[in-house]
Design a protein around this nucleic acid. Structure first.
Lengths: 346, 346
DNA sequence: TCTCCACATGTTTACGCAAACACATGATCC
DNA sequence: GGATCATGTGTTTGCGTAAACATGTGGAGA
């Protein structure tokens, strides 16, 4: 009986991951010295260090992240709330943020939300603050300043491409400029006006692109066609494209992202309209793939890396300094002209 | 002087995030009762619970993840090592894993590695084990069993679409079956043989697709053309496509993923060859977008959700049970025939 | 009526680490 | 040659939480 108990205890003990104390015992030093070696402080004699290091190796020691974080009060992890990686623009953004964070020695803890409801954002936020993160990045969240959704304080937050908030630092792409560039480009080509397939109504980026398209047309005195809505997917672009392809007057379409532009192109081609001879199509994002569409897509290039760089540095400022950094100017995108746009047929 | 010190101390105290002790003091209960409320245990009187809850609200209390993890020994976070989200197939996989993990109450902590070198994988692994994770998922890592790269034990690991390992559970898509399906499809259409644009040489998935393509041709007694290599990107597919478009005999091409297939299609179209009348092109992955290429792409659909579901459940088995689960059968992909493939010209 | 038990709550402890402090030892300076 | 200092190491402590154990209360069952 006693033997069995012993064995169980031994089993349990050996299953337990080794701690500093175990390493210390084996190396014949204090656990504090082990700590010094683990954090490679300079004030440890070389011979001692080697002894500790080899004890670590033998025991397979790994520092316990929880204990360390409890003392240092940091995890070197950023929380990230986004709408999932299905949307390529999102995926690119998240990719860039991950890399930027990594360069700063941080990893990224992801949480995807399905919908843009206050409820969903709030829940995600709650879950993430209970997670081991030092700060939270919110992508494309536009409903933060509603009274119902008060983001809990005490956690550094950075907003990217979302609604204006006076309570948190933000980073933004100049969506308006991008939309203006494409719209003008199409108008300058000689098109009487430009149709628009917008992103979902609850997306802030989509709204700003649409507003700017509208303003640009108005400035130019061009007629303003009714806007169509998609959900960023190629399928929704295709659906919108079919509607547009039935209207004979359509000669230029600006889709709010490249995926939808792809769908729009497909619909027109299927309807027997040539691009760009019969109709010009432009997108937004400039995915790596867009240059290989048939025809290659005229679009607006976003600099995801710069965006990510800024997000991370704003985050680190808050984590380290505690100061609220000033807002930075929005990042300017630029127009990439390819073969999907041309002068209208006469 | 004393006043200043006082103030500083007070400032510091107030800046500190409130702990259970603070909530307990305000609610006039012990901190253990606060803990019970926080974990909503049943054995707390309703009136007490409300008192604690409101104290939490007033103080803006959030549980400290580090302290909690130190005691419970779990973070409810999975580490994930992949090659970045630039590749859409990867992005889809990561997206599915994130969602599957979320359903199980876990978040995903990402780390992207640039290259498939032992060094990079090893470093990523090291960094992640020091992070606050309960287990680590490795996607497409094929060099794990080299003697130099011994994954540290003590951390649950699951391998996805990677090299065979006898030390860790794995989940796999049946790459060979997928490649066989497309190749056979093209052969059955009447093509004399099928060219192949493979993924990078160091990718296990790419290698298996290529091997299966080769075997299928051999079985059918078809001539085996020299294989071209890409890096999964549309640009590399385009480069390969230009080479192929110069060879007049090419009537059918199987690209190892949809992005490269897009590039190949572009190259052929640019060379004045019609798809599928002059040449058939097929891909692998079935991105949502592939149905909207011009023409829509014949490809192999991978079920990323099932893959993710299995990965996560294998992970949880290890975390909870500690048992090494048996290997599951590879996930069968299936062929999606669209308009990019047809009988060869006569 | 007394015992026993369910229930609400409090007290003590351990988790693993790093900061703060203490203490030797030997070199360096006037 | 004693004061001063840098260097390597050990000891003590506290971070915030949840488990384990302890206590007190009231009601059910004999």
């Amino acid at each position: 009986m006693d033997g069995a108990t012993q064995q169980t205890a031994a089993g349990r003990r050996s299953r337990r991951r080794p701690s500093m104390a175990d390493v210390a015992a084996m190396a014949g030093v204090s656990s504090q010295t082990v700590s010094r070696v683990a954090n490679n402080r300079s004030n440890v004699e070389e011979e001692t260090r080697q002894r500790v290091l080899s004890a670590m190796r033998v025991l397979g020691y790994r520092p316990n992240a929880a204990a360390r974080a409890l003392v240092t009060d940091q995890f070197r992890t950023l929380g990230l709330i986004s709408f999932g990686l299905g949307n390529f623009g999102n995926a690119r953004t998240v990719d860039s943020i991950t890399r930027a964070a990594q360069r700063a020695g941080y990893t990224v803890n992801m949480l995807a939300i399905e919908s843009q409801t206050e409820q969903a954002v709030h829940e995600a936020f709650g879950q993430l603050t209970m997670q081991a993160v030092d700060g939270i990045v919110l992508i494309e969240a536009q409903i933060l300043d509603t009274p119902a959704l008060r983001l809990p304080s005490g956690v550094p937050v950075v907003l990217a491409d979302g609604d204006v908030s006076h309570r948190h630092p933000m980073v933004d792409t100049d969506q308006a400029l991008g939309a203006r560039l494409v719209t003008r480009h199409l108008l300058d080509l000689g098109h009487e006006t430009v149709w628009h397939v917008a992103g979902p109504e609850d997306s802030y980026a989509a709204r700003r692109r649409a507003e700017s398209w509208h303003a640009t047309l108005k400035e130019a005195g061009a007629p303003i066609p009714r806007m169509l809505f998609g959900d960023w997917s190629a399928a929704s672009g295709y659906a919108a494209g079919r509607v547009l392809a039935e209207q004979p007057g359509v000669t230029a379409v600006f889709a709010a992202n490249d995926q939808m532009a792809l769908g729009v192109m497909r619909a027109f081609i299927q309807a027997g309209r040539r691009i760009p001879e019969d109709v010009s199509i432009a997108g937004f994002d400039d995915l790596d793939e867009s240059a290989y569409f048939s025809p290659p897509l005229t679009t607006v290039r976003q600099d995801f890396d710069v965006l990510a760089e800024r997000i991370v540095s704003l985050m680190l400022d808050q984590i380290r300094g505690g100061t609220a950094p000033s807002a930075t100017a929005p990042i300017a995108p630029h127009l990439i002209i390819r073969e999907s746009t041309a002068a209208p047929p006469d």
